[in-house]
Computed example of a mutant assay.
Amino acid sequence: MTEFGGPEALHLVDVPEVHAGPGEVRLAVRTAAVNPTDTHGRNGDYARMAGGEPEMPWIVGMDVAGVVDEVGPDGDGRLAEGDRVMAIVVPSGSHGGYREQVVLPAASVVPVPAGVDFPAASSLPMNGLTARLALDRMELQRGDVLAVTGAAGSFGGYVVQLAKADGLTVVADASELDTGLVTSLGADVVLPRGEGFAAAVRERYPDGVDGLADGSVQGAQVLPAVRDGGVVTTVRGYQGEDADHELARGVRVLPVFVRDYGQNTEALDRLRAQAEDGTVTLRVADVLPAADAAEAHRRLEAGGVRGRLVLSFG
């Protein structure tokens, strides 16, 4: 974007060539996933939060797949030119995933899962790492019960699958149309999504669940599902500011920001391995030309997309 706004603010621009510095690699980007986070970058929410005069053009996009075409000095030898890779991008100014060429810390880049194409690979890093971070911050133990909202979405779906791999019992929400999908992801209990979710959880677990990953950003509405002293992880920065009663019960509300795992090579490579062995399912809704990014944002904001929309750079 050269100015913030609706989907129409997205358009093609030329940017200068970039080169890999020490500890960095450059990717020839083949695909970039489209996420709700991107829409908040596009409309200026994140720039306003950061303050100051935003750098233009502003390029969004947090996960990419492509080919390493330049390796900077002082690397660890893990990556080489020609490697097929996926990566997480922490965008800022013109540094974002929606570009043909991007320089990244080598620590943010791992090989694509074996047998996986670029569109599917680019759907994993940001949402997968956010899910991994959410679970790590909760520090639940095998056998504990985790509730998940937004379980049919990409973040929520990965939370369900990774939680099951961690030995947790998962109770998830779903619409009637998504019940089969969420069940197939491994949820032990699937309850109707919406305002009654917390009450339905308490019917199944009268003392409340041990933890909750709030992927659908329901905030105070779902905190009653959690037991006294339990833990909630949230996206979009929610900290329970409107939930004094729940905080008084000792419920901890922990916002998660994927940038904290932006250079966690071990976590990203673990996701690669879990995609290879089928622990996590990569779901691509559609692939569009990069020039149609505005249409991808319109479709995403209209709702109902299951899996990731992906932009192709050819």
Rank of each mutant, 00 (worst) to 15 (best):
M1A: 14
T2F: 04
P7M: 10
H11P: 01
L12R: 15
A20S: 11
A32K: 13
A32D: 06
A33I: 09
T39R: 02
T39A: 15
H40E: 10
G44I: 13
G44C: 07
D45P: 00
M49R: 13
M49T: 12
E53K: 15
P57S: 12
V60I: 15
A65H: 02
R78N: 00
P91T: 03
G96F: 04
V102P: 03
L104A: 09
V116M: 15
F118V: 00
P119Q: 08
A120S: 15
S122R: 06
S123M: 08
L124M: 15
P125R: 07
L129S: 05
L135C: 10
D136A: 13
D136Y: 02
M138F: 05
M138K: 03
E139W: 00
L140K: 02
R142K: 12
V148N: 03
T149D: 09
G150S: 08
G150H: 01
G150C: 10
Y158E: 09
Y158M: 14
V160P: 06
K164A: 13
V171E: 05
V171K: 02
V171F: 00
V171H: 01
D178S: 15
G180A: 09
L185T: 03
D188K: 04
P192E: 12
P192Y: 11
R193I: 00
G194V: 10
G196N: 13
F197E: 02
A200E: 15
Y205T: 03
D214N: 06
D214R: 05
D214W: 06
G215N: 09
V222C: 11
V222T: 06
A225W: 03
V226P: 01
V226E: 05
G230H: 04
V232F: 13
G240R: 09
G240D: 11
D242P: 06
D242A: 10
A243C: 05
D244G: 12
H245W: 02
L247E: 13
F257K: 00
R259W: 01
E266D: 13
E266R: 14
L271P: 12
R272Q: 10
A273C: 14
Q274C: 03
V280E: 08
L282V: 13
R283S: 14
V284G: 02
A290T: 01
A296E: 07
R299P: 11
L300C: 02
L300K: 05
V305M: 06
V310W: 04
L311G: 12
